[in-house]
Design a protein around this nucleic acid. Structure first.
Lengths: 133, 133
DNA sequence: GTTCGCATACTCGGATAGTGGTTGTCCGAGTTGTGTTGG
DNA sequence: CCAACACAACTCGGACAACCACTATCCGAGTATGCGAAC
């Protein structure tokens, strides 16, 4: 079990946007070059973030991607869910048992992690990064 | 990202062993039938648990799998690691940056979940299950 | 000077492979218990 | 009665195939910008 590379790209792109240009547009080429990914693939990932309402895209010349006004409050969890989906990590595909104790324990542990990721906003992290720069 | 079905089978098999026969041997056929999996596939999974030292296998007629004496202290985390491996969920395959802040946040959140899974021993859960029966 | 049209620079979305991990099957080899046979 | 042997039940491990999600690429379509020509 691993988080997909797409999640990695999404998180790094979001942080890159906060660091470089919180209110300017950046083309997918620039973003892709920074992470050494193919632009076409990255654009697919960014489309998911657009649909999740975290960034907005502008077509045409001088187009690109830009953070939405409320970007500081976006949490890691939201980004991850936008890419990976928000289903549970564990499915007890078991014999018609609606409340499997194993399932409950797994979900409860998962929620501990999600709680942590929910508390991490990219606004907070952006501040820390400018400090270390 | 999902936990594999193999992890599901492993957890359920362990709990089934505690419930039915903590110190008796059960054949893989019996165990597989209970979860509706093919016996050959389940035996592959159980081999991993044997190598991790949680159960022991006995060949030959009347052979099968049995919990090891210290079974009560086995945690969910150990079982999961035995099946899934114990690498981190998130790899920041990034540009030669040894201490990526994103990576650190992800690992820290992951550790919260692992802490929870580490505290859950199958001995504790076995007690709860006999209560509900 | 204004307007129209065209080239350009982008994003969007579908179609399409390649790739690797998961899931599952098959089979031969080794091991143990049991029953049977021969002395 | 006992020992040796044969057989059946069982696990072990490797090889192999099917499948699916992830990763990645390509291309046509749509869209906005900016420039130039025509009136």
């Amino acid at each position: 079990m691993k988080y997909s590379k797409a999640t990695n790209y999404a998180l790094h792109t979001m942080m890159y946007l906060t660091a470089v240009a919180p209110d300017k547009r950046l083309g997918v080429q620039q973003l892709a070059e920074h992470q050494r990914v193919s632009p076409t693939y990255l654009s697919k990932i960014l489309t998911k973030l657009v649909k999740a309402g975290m960034i907005e895209s502008v077509s045409g010349a001088n187009g690109g991607y830009k953070l939405k006004p409320n970007w500081e409050a976006i949490s890691f969890l939201e980004i991850i869910h936008a890419i990976e989906g928000s289903t549970s990590l564990f499915d007890c595909c078991q014999n018609d048992n609606p409340d499997c104790l194993i399932q409950k324990i797994m979900v409860s542990a998962e929620e501990k992690m999600e709680q942590e990721l929910f508390n991490q906003t990219i606004g907070d992290l952006a501040k820390k990064m400018t400090v270390t720069l």
